[in-house]
Design a protein around this nucleic acid. Sequence first.
DNA 1: GAATATCATTCGATATTGTCGAATGGTTCT
DNA 2: AGAACCATTCGACAATATCGAATGATATTC
Lengths: 268, 268
Amino acid sequence: MIQSIDRALRVLTVLAGDHRLSLGEIAQRLDLPPSTVHGIVRTLLPHRMVVQEHDSGHYRLGPAVLTLGNVYLDTLELRSRVAPWAEDLARRTGLAVRTAVMLVEDVVVVHHEPRPDGSRQMPEVGIVIPAHASALGKALLAFDDEAAETVLGGPLRSMSGDTVTDVRALRGQLKTIRQTGLAEEVEEAVLGECELAAVLCDRLGSPVGAIGLVAPAEEWPLDAAVVTALRTAARSVSRELGATSWPPHGDAPKASDMGTRRKRPRPA
Amino acid sequence: MIQSIDRALRVLTVLAGDHRLSLGEIAQRLDLPPSTVHGIVRTLLPHRMVVQEHDSGHYRLGPAVLTLGNVYLDTLELRSRVAPWAEDLARRTGLAVRTAVMLVEDVVVVHHEPRPDGSRQMPEVGIVIPAHASALGKALLAFDDEAAETVLGGPLRSMSGDTVTDVRALRGQLKTIRQTGLAEEVEEAVLGECELAAVLCDRLGSPVGAIGLVAPAEEWPLDAAVVTALRTAARSVSRELGATSWPPHGDAPKASDMGTRRKRPRPA
DNA sequence: GAATATCATTCGATATTGTCGAATGGTTCT
DNA sequence: AGAACCATTCGACAATATCGAATGATATTC
């Protein structure tokens, strides 16, 4: 691992947490001398990954990060495959539909179909939610042992009063999810908001994302028809991605298995 | 400038251009030995700035770039200030409204208010357009000498048959824009699409962005009332950002002036 | 089906390169 | 007016990234 690049990425991460930081503040958070950090931001600056406020000298993220994010979305097969199904689901259920992928200990929303009531809703693409506090995250963790260990090993932040932060309780939930194929979350991330989610798989049977229905607490639990619609959508998207079975059996290759590459799923 | 970080950012840029590249292809495009590039991507990988396809070994951008882009948007004062005005403009004119900022030789759309006809439109936030081929870009270049020189100095890519690629012609356009405060573009970036744009300024009088109306070629030129509405919106947003006059007089401090910092506009 | 070409990856020697402490000039607060 | 803070510059040192060659494994070709 290249030290300076790792540090540069850490600078970006810090800036993503607390927007608008002085050079000294960044240095403090990274436990590095200010002059070292200065060299780093000086390199990020011409690429516009960060910009400097011309009055205070503080640093913030720059427009270049936005273009990268846009390209990521445009080229994500999961997203284009999910889009029509999400639209269909939203119309059928009257609920908002979110699709997310794993990002270390969190999930990132890569697609958001607003609930079809004509109201103006904030687009949620790009938001980050702790995996253990969201149905989307739990649906993924249940079929991704590696990520599950990462999350359960680290500290479990509490998002709301109802966030499940007990490791044993979470392991139990994941086991249930593996059986039913569905993960749920009741006001664990955001008060008044519940979610039902299902994992999405690719041609290797690996979990690559999750799709979920977001409902206000008053409408919880969801109708059986709605649950079925979600399962159908998850299965259909997975099939379009090349998965041969759904829910997955849990023997999918782990993300770190890079030695054993193969284009097609292992023949039985 | 730190070499390895610069190279890492170049890797990301290359990946933003051609999604899905093998290690060797990246190395070739950057004119670097594969082993050097490997060290770089190896560092980007755990941060999920890039991910590796587990079947082909090819690299692509990762979900981490999306979260950065989202934070950038959320913290952009320009964006939050523009949003209500853009909505108002769209309702009043029946046209789509775009807001963009400068990114080296291009502009990046940071806000997009779809035309209010109820149709489903692709969100354009994050897309990149060559500055010289868009009204948004020309509105910015007219008041940003530094950026103008960068763009006019480099090669002027042609986007459509009507793209103006002649430096002298462009300089003439910029002069006109400085007088009228409005920039236009007729099918220069996308065939069948025209745009009228105005610059947005901050408290220092520096151009920080541009707002524009997008119209199909059939509806061009725009009504006088529509033109006035755009001017009013641009002036209003600029005032909310702290600008004391609009259009700007062109004596704004350049982005590179970092020695002379001041919180408020220079008193007269 | 054996042989070749391609590719990602590892390793280690080299000197290039990033690192860090101290100093500078500017600005803001007391 | 003085002190404190801050971004920035500089230069010496050695830690560190770089690159060529080697490896293993996989597709491709004959």
